[in-house]
Design a protein around this nucleic acid. Sequence first.
DNA 1: AACGACATGTAAACGGTTACATGATTGC
DNA 2: GCAATCATGTAACCGTTTACATGTCGTT
Lengths: 193, 193
Amino acid sequence: MSLDHAILGFVNERARSGYDLKKAFDTTVAHIWPAKQSQIYLTLARLNRAGLVELRVVQQDGKPNRKVYHITEAGLDELRRWLACPLPLPPVRDAFLVQMTWADSTEKHEIAGLIDAWDTAHRERLEECRRFLCKLERNPPKGRWGRILIPLIVEQLIMIEETSLRWAAAAKNSVKAMPPSEGDAGHQAENET
Amino acid sequence: MSLDHAILGFVNERARSGYDLKKAFDTTVAHIWPAKQSQIYLTLARLNRAGLVELRVVQQDGKPNRKVYHITEAGLDELRRWLACPLPLPPVRDAFLVQMTWADSTEKHEIAGLIDAWDTAHRERLEECRRFLCKLERNPPKGRWGRILIPLIVEQLIMIEETSLRWAAAAKNSVKAMPPSEGDAGHQAENET
DNA sequence: AACGACATGTAAACGGTTACATGATTGC
DNA sequence: GCAATCATGTAACCGTTTACATGTCGTT
């Protein structure tokens, strides 16, 4: 239940509403733990029932009232406890690799197409990460550890995206070196006269 | 719904029972798409209702009867259709990186501990992948594409694990270079006199 | 008049995990 | 006697996604 702890971390930084949290997620940890608005509200309600956060309603005029959540003693304890224990690695579950596994049921040009699409998707993700790293450099996170670890996290994402792109290049070559499938006539031609 | 298509791929290779499929998953695609026994049976029943697979019951004596599933025309069409269309990248969702994000709520030795544990977990995963690659070399997958793409898939996993280990080494150094947290006395000593 | 920002939620569905249930045969 | 292999399933739960619902204010 990491969403719980991601939220506890945010409300520990400072008291926030569900709306604030959604924005905080989208602008910071969306790369490593995306969260939908609905799930944030649901989780906030559950954390409140569990006594890990408390809320006070802030009246506003012209705007809807805000429910501002702050962390409790119990919540901080729970956050610290969680922060101290190593978690199992998340399982790899990548449909693209499943598609590669069953490539014998398709044709060469379609395999090449899948790899191309995968490559451009990762290229876009890499650019996103690089943009985010620049943003971090322009206004660095506060906190002794945050200032060094948060950029490090993004660098990990970048390293992995770069690895994915290197792999895609190798895979493209391997596919290009293979003779075309039977049903493939007219598709493999694009690059040769 | 990639489990559906992973299963369609397997029953397209050859007719299999739920029990066979579980073994096939565990010995081949478990690295890229793990599946529990219960979910395989559930999915098989659904694929059957949808007309993508059919079954015949194979009587056995001394052993429980087998329900052997084979792919239908519609199933093969669906598999081929799926194999032709690029899928969105799976979202990254790594609790360890969330822990790094909130490192300011812990102490130095605990951060170091988390990174160490993460490092050894990835080291084990890397070894697993390498063992699997050796197994593939000793008896290579059949199929024009399988023979080259399945080892390539495992090489991707290996490359990414190696990248993770390089990152862990860098992260350990960054953490070591930082002064200890207040509550940290007596923990940071292990390596210096 | 339409759209985006502000702000809160609910309901249904989906994919996956955990745990339970049964029962014969084979090998240590 | 106990565990593993063979073989099938169900039920409850959990985290996530998608879609729906409401309403004001300020800007274009």
